[in-house]
Design a protein around this nucleic acid. Structure first.
Lengths: 122, 122
DNA sequence: TAAGATTGATTACAGATGTAGTCAATAGAA
DNA sequence: TTCTATTGACTACATCTGTAATCAATCTTA
């Protein structure tokens, strides 16, 4: 199950979930638009994620290529469930209501959700 | 906006969101069913929440009564939005899909959600 | 009134987290 | 071949978290 992934670590995971395997230097570049981290910081976060079992490494010359060991889907399910449990005893509806209130739902989202619910009802 | 509330602190907030104001000793009792914390631990967490501006205190003899300064709704909206942003660029649908996959949705939830979506469409 | 219980204040301390710096080896450039 | 840039390994350090312990004041109970 791997340990808990911290906020900053999640930023790294997001980059690697988009494309992998990837070397540390590439991760730094990709983050550069959003984050103002030194490459040392990124390296540290990568190492911690490897320790935690969230990333695997593969040697490529004298550097490593990193690949997620945890799928984004798996992580997202856990995180979503954990949040709804901590706040609403596991019920999802209130959580969605809050997303909606925060203008989190677009027209498209609503349609997608309706389709999803229809599927679930069967 | 108050700073970030940690996991353990959230357990305390949940107790006070159910009923407030409440003295530390009551919080300890209420938590006793779920958590195995010493009363010292609970006191520490209460103090930190006061420092963070998440709780207010009111003297009651030589003890304090604690009241949430942040509404559960407000917190939930932030948390839900933040999660969906970190994972799905702010889109809610994928998050709900994940809740559904983790068996987080009961029959009742589905109905509630349909009603909610119907309301949002208008 | 003396002793014990309770309360907030202060202190403790290890592990997680955010954010790097230093070092030694090595690959590439001149 | 010598200098430099890059890379992983190791170290650093303040803050946050989880989980309390100690202390002094005060309330309660015998």
């Amino acid at each position: 199950m791997a340990q808990r992934i911290s906020q900053s670590e999640l930023d790294i995971m997001n980059v690697l979930w988009e494309k992998s395997p990837m070397a540390a230097s590439e991760v730094v570049e990709r983050l550069d638009n959003n984050k103002d981290w030194s490459s040392r910081t990124v390296k540290t976060l990568l190492s911690r994620l490897v320790e935690k079992g969230a990333l695997s490494t593969e040697a490529d010359g004298r550097r490593y290529l990193y690949t997620p060991l945890i799928a984004k889907d798996t992580y997202a399910s856990h995180a979503a469930k954990s949040l709804s449990e901590r706040l609403f005893g596991g019920r999802a509806a209130p959580l969605v209501a809050h997303l909606a209130k925060g203008e989190g739902l677009s027209e498209t989202d609503i349609e997608e959700l309706e389709a999803l619910l229809a599927r679930l009802k069967k």
